[in-house]
Design a protein around this nucleic acid. Sequence first.
DNA 1: ATTAGGG
DNA 2: CCCTAAT
Length: 712
Amino acid sequence: MKLKKRLDCGLRGFHVAIIPKAPRSIRRRIQPKKTDEDGQVCAFELLASLARQILQEETESSSASSNASGNDHAVIGKDAVEDGRQYEDKPVKTECLDHGSCEVSAVVSESASLNCNQKCLLNEFPLVEEDDILERTLKTVGSNSSGKIGGDLKLEICKSNMLKGNFLSKAEGGSPNYRESCFNSVENAFEQLVETKAMETGGLNTATTRISKEPTELCMTFPALTDSDKDVKLPSCRDPVPNASFSRHRNDIKLGIRDDDDNLPRFNKFSNKLKVYRPVTRIGDRRIRKLLTSKYWKSAPKLKDFEHPRTGKQDGGMRPSHRKRKTCYNNEKCHRDVLYKWRRFYDRSSVETFDGGFSCESVTNSPEKGRNGNKSISGSMLQTNGMTSSAKGHQSSLRSKDSNVKFSIKSFKVPEIFIEVSETATVGSLKRTVMDAVTAILGGGIRVGVLMQGKKVRDDNRTLSQTGLASEDNLDTLGFTLDPSSVESPNLPLVCPEDPPLLLSDAPQLVARSCETPALDSECPNALTNLALLTKTETLVESNREQAISHTDILTDTTLPDSRALVAVPALNVEALAVVPLNQKSRRSDIAQRRTRRPFSVSEVEALVQAVEELGTGRWRDVKLRSFEDADHRTYVDLKDKWKTLVHTARIAPQQRRGEPVPQELLDRVLAAHSYWSQHQAKQQGKHQAAGVLKIQSPTDHSNGATTGNQL
DNA sequence: ATTAGGG
DNA sequence: CCCTAAT
């Protein structure tokens, strides 16, 4: 996989590199304009002229395709096509090429078409061409602007991008994919520039925001002109499920970033759309999970509790899994993606509230966290342990006059994330990687848990009032957790926001991931709405992670107060999706996730030791009931396993022990108890005596314990 | 559903 | 932690 990735990346890079900047003729034309008007108009003009130029050239090249040198445009188109074929094996070419041109927007439209097609076919595809073009354009402009680019450059770029977005929109019509494409391309271009400039946060933010909004609006505004149908026509989704989330990947394919090992959450929330529901039991969960396991990600703890018919159904299924995305540091595309994500992040975080009264600034943290994590990391395998499993945010809640309870979540911590990076990766790449991962998580693989007084509120069916969350007192102790969602099921039909299931009322269960497919843009808003509803209602009280649904979606959405932003998001999704390869294998892995790792704390170990001393080693269920009744995430199997490891740990040299050090005293007790119970398997029934004895025995004296046992 | 043990 | 097998 890695090799492949690299190749892909390299290939990509290569293409990009090779692609000629822009026809000189174009440049020439551009220059004058630039000089004359400068600024927005200039950008616009430039774009238009470029488009024209390209169109023309395209035509020419078509007629004389044999031309060795070929024009830039031709090359680009070709590449695009090739890519498509490479990955999809489907004849995209024809369609792409014959796609004519729409006047000014010819260039754009064409590339757009390509993209669109590619996407459709593959369900994932980057719009490299667009980017390239845009970049070129931008560069050209910049170079032409006789050195005085400075701060204006950005502005211009933004505008250009916007324009581009416009064109694209027009060309492509209302096609959702298209929109995304536009968005992406714009963003990418922009991001690149920004990146070059050093990623100044402020700048990025501002710029980003603008871009995201503008293009989106434009896109929406424009009526569908043409090729929308293309999307439909194309043999797009290989995926049985048309709406499969994968539909918009951007760089994935190129990068080939997908590996079976990756468990990172998908990047975009849309991607998680599909879910399979299944009845839930812990065991059941496990069963399912076992089928799909990823190395690094773990699903949230399972719930026990009864399952509500509905609930069970909903949460039981598989949820979208997260995939970890391996990084391609060397690839620019990757970087862009990362940036993109970053931007997304910021956008979200920046967005404050929406009428729901639920505001979430938290997202911002993630990025922060990511950075921090990076700092500390140095090996090839990084583990950012963001507070083990769940993070709670500080949130303050306000009780409104009406019966609604308003929550304000200040921040969320990002759940544990595993990142794998090459040793030679740069800090910058690491940062990006982390950011990427974080973003990905936030983008979708998260499930929200509700804590009240430190305890998880499990019953999703209860109302806030019933749960006590409607009362001021409890609100102070209200907490939320973000956990990686456990299972993802690609195969289920997505639930649209409009779908009934959407929560609300007392049985909030799950909110399906909404906007997924291409047509989604329109849907997104709904999601938002839903979110709002969710927020307002008791739905919030959710609980067990397993059962609980994944309000992830909601959560995610929540983050974006601005509907526009939401709409815009799809573009992002594309990228995110891109990460996930379509192949069955990966899919499969996506379905189940490994539970999140939750190292036992010393206190837990102590409790375990205590319980085992009293109950013996063969009664894990009793141990569970006795000492871990409230620890939903600790199953008796877990306890048994832990004991096993404890015994092992106690036997090895302290230097060889890893993780949080367990007090020697406890380890001694472990050995003592272990040896004792080993000799009294037959007597496990008569634990009373044993328990008493064990308690008495000296923690450090193994033989003593054994002896005592013998005496008994 | 538990337990035991390998991976 | 997961998975399987045996209870």
